[in-house]
Design a protein around this nucleic acid. Structure first.
Lengths: 214, 214
DNA sequence: GTCTATATCTAGATAGAC
DNA sequence: GTCTATCTAGATATAGAC
């Protein structure tokens, strides 16, 4: 094993175990065991368990940032938006342990706390831009106060859908169906404020996807 | 100190520390220290840290269950609903550590896992009954598919608003304002499906409360 | 780079005196 | 019921040989 490969192996093994069992339930010995390397070797590549978490977080951000980099003058079609949400939940799902133990992970590492808040803020901006785009097209009509509440609810669903689903929804559903529900849930928050033809367009899209789920 | 009092002291101290620092960050020694008793004394009253958590959970359920015991033929006014949500968030806030570390706490104790799911189910039922009450009055009009999505989003907000607020919202806000936002967020999910006069009634109520917040 | 062996540290939990 | 002292287990992390 060359340098990069073992490091990579440790990261992938950690990610799998963290996602499956929850980060607090996974020890460094456990990771080393699962990766078929010695604990000592693991600590040759990483100074601490936190280092592994931080590195995984960096990779998550690297993948997620481009997705929420919404240009200020964008005007997404329903299909584009669906696709964007799909990508977003896909990547969050790959790093779901971060969302599952958000409070404790960020609580232990102040740097992560700040980084996650910043990420949250960028995602909120992106959601705001998308709403603004719909408003510019005349597809969305909403009062400022309601807009703020909507944005808050959107961020709540975007942030906690994954732990919510893992805890209360998942039973007997394949990954695709769970994701479809997530996206449908998010869009359903916006649909009531849309005007036709966009409203019907978004609704039809949601119905179409949901039919194939479960 | 008589038997009941020390037990009570341990529970209250634990609850405070769990809520403030997060359950995983609080050790039994820490609890004993904060309660000004010895670790040995703590273990005279409780067999394990889990026992403390389970007892706190039971108390939470005992307080929360009556609130979500909505009669099947109920027809809540806007003010009643606001009050009910207020009570609900109040009690959840008092036991917020449960919601902050839901996955890990239930993951460690299968009994708690089941109990929490059952509680979630009863709360979902209650939310459904309230929607049904509004529908019966002709105040709410919604398609079955959208109703399901709405109920899902409602439960997500009801379950994760507290950790969400603690992580991303709280800064520089008093408890009352945070609560008001929570309730406003929940009601905002329903408002788009309401008809006048109820729609305007709910909207006005939300606006009135929000003005006094921040 | 990787291993084995081990050190360190801390949390949960117990024993036994009072 | 409460204390002090201590045990145990297990997790993080290091040392030193290969």
């Amino acid at each position: 094993m060359t340098r990069r490969n073992t490091r990579e192996l440790i990261l992938q093994t950690s990610l799998n175990l963290f996602n499956t069992l929850g980060e607090p339930a996974v020890t460094t010995n456990h990771i080393a065991d699962e990766a078929d390397i010695s604990p000592g070797n693991l600590y040759y590549h990483f100074n601490s368990k936190q280092d592994i978490i931080v590195e995984l977080f960096k990779r998550f951000v690297a993948q997620f940032d481009p997705i929420i980099d919404v240009p200020a003058d964008s005007a997404l079609e329903a299909n584009d938006l669906w696709f964007q949400l799909h990508l977003s939940f896909e990547i969050k799902g790959q790093y779901r342990f971060l969302y599952r133990n958000l409070a404790d992970i960020t609580g232990r590492v102040p740097d992560l706390e700040r980084a996650f808040r910043a990420l949250f803020h960028r995602e909120r901006q992106a959601a705001g831009e998308i709403l603004a785009g719909l408003e510019r097209r005349g597809a969305l009509k909403i009062e400022p106060t309601e807009r703020e509440l909507l944005l808050g609810n959107l961020m709540l669903v975007l942030t906690y859908w994954i732990p919510y689903a893992d805890q209360f929804v998942t039973h007997g559903m394949d990954d695709g169906s769970v994701q479809t529900r997530a996206i449908a849930g998010v869009l359903q928050l916006v649909i009531p404020y849309l005007r036709d033809p966009e409203r019907e367009e978004f609704s039809a899209l949601t119905r179409a996807y949901l039919e194939h789920a479960d």
